[in-house]
Design a protein around this nucleic acid. Structure first.
Lengths: 225, 225
DNA sequence: CAATTTCGTTAATATTGCCTTAACCCTGAT
DNA sequence: ATCAGGGTTAAGGCAATATTAACGAAATTG
């Protein structure tokens, strides 16, 4: 898969440096020099990742972020900000209004490349992606923030419970076999007994509602709103 | 509002050029020809923005930057460096000495003006500097003055503690992973052990209240009023 | 510029709470 | 009734986190 990265900064030097390093790694790169152009470039280029300076003339990074997020295709792209370290985190309120992450200036090419790879890897996993929103009951799962909201009530589930829940909710109504669950949540190599799954299901039922998790005897479990 | 800009460079030509272009846009401009004079000019002129060459006789830009930052009124001003193209070293050192941004020489007047406008726009945002006010406990964070007020009690937190707090408070309820925290507070390249975060969390809990900072085992921390 | 204080980090030790399991219970099918 | 598959509960291990103290570095002070 060809990954497309959009770079946005008002300084040509930085654009050149970053572009060179990313293209060397095989990414397809386009650039824009301010927020307004970035929004346009996003629409035509449709990148998976946008790397954007916060401060720019014309339209700053956060403004552009908001506009892109408002576009119909704008919800899937990962937006990361370039910022000076120790810069105002309030400006980074970006993550509330749609920014995913950021990287501190000055940027070391090696660090940049590894972070970009991590971001794109994350993007790849976006089929059972971040937000599973189930209309009946208003259950919302945010993998990035490790948050689960059920009818407005916020839960902080332990890791395994969270992962199990995320798996089941990723395909409501689908039955997951015990074997499949073990592979997905615990990994191929870890060996745990069958009761372990039961216990975790129990905890989820306790916290989120008995009726949401249905047992299919001899097969596995499924989530149903 | 009248915006005041202090230009610092040892070349009169450059001072004249920049001054002309900025005054044309309605900014109030003063100039200084080296770092030492810049510090003096800053104290009397009290500009919102300083545009300063890195390399100058008497006292260079970074030294001047540090001195200005040390002044009581020196934390609010935005300091931007003028640097030669591709001068990586000065960029980095500039950030470390407290510079906010930089602009590359040769300077194009149009670019300059738009950047100055962006900087001053940011300055305006900074001045309603009370950034996070959490109603449920009267926690107020003033990022410019490095002050934290909790129920009327004023704290002067050390840098790292303050930054960690600012990060967590920037999105109450959101869980921040340890990795994310390290990137945000310590930077991409600095390597510190995991216990370091714990210790800082501990200090915040001591000072502001045990219950405000919740641990999500295996994941990270979150702030909750 | 030495003396002193404060900050950031780590090492060492204690503690917590998640994960797992063992033991036992329940249910429905044969 | 027996059995298979799952449910439930509590307890213990153990990895993750908490805590404390101590050290060097930086900042501050006299």
């Amino acid at each position: 898969m060809q990954f497309k990265v959009l770079l946005v900064d008002d300084e040509q030097d930085i654009l050149d440096l970053l572009k060179y390093n990313l293209e060397k790694e095989g990414f397809v790169v386009e650039t824009a020099s301010n927020g307004r152009l970035a929004v346009q470039a996003f629409e035509s280029f449709q990148p998976q990742l946008i790397l954007m300076d916060v401060m720019m003339p014309e339209m700053d990074g956060m403004e552009a972020c908001r506009e892109i997020r408002d576009l119909p295709q704008g919800s899937d792209v990962i937006i990361a900000f370039l910022t000076a370290r120790n810069e105002d985190y309030s400006q980074m309120a970006g993550f509330e209004s749609g920014g995913d992450d950021y990287i501190a200036k000055p940027i070391k090419p090696r660090i940049l490349v590894s972070k970009v790879k991590a971001w794109l890897k994350r993007w790849e996993q976006k089929t059972d992606h971040i937000i599973a929103e189930v209309s009946t009951g208003g259950l919302v799962i945010d993998k990035e923030k490790y948050l689960v909201t059920n009818n407005g009530e916020v839960f902080n589930l332990p890791k395994k419970e969270f992962e199990l829940l995320a798996l089941l909710v990723s395909a409501p109504g689908r039955v997951f076999t015990r074997e499949y669950i073990l592979n997905a949540v615990w990994g191929n190599d870890v060996i745990v007994g069958d009761r372990t799954i039961d216990v975790h299901i129990r905890k989820l039922r306790e916290k989120l509602g008995e009726e949401l998790f249905k047992t299919i005897k001899g097969v596995g479990y499924k989530f149903e709103p």
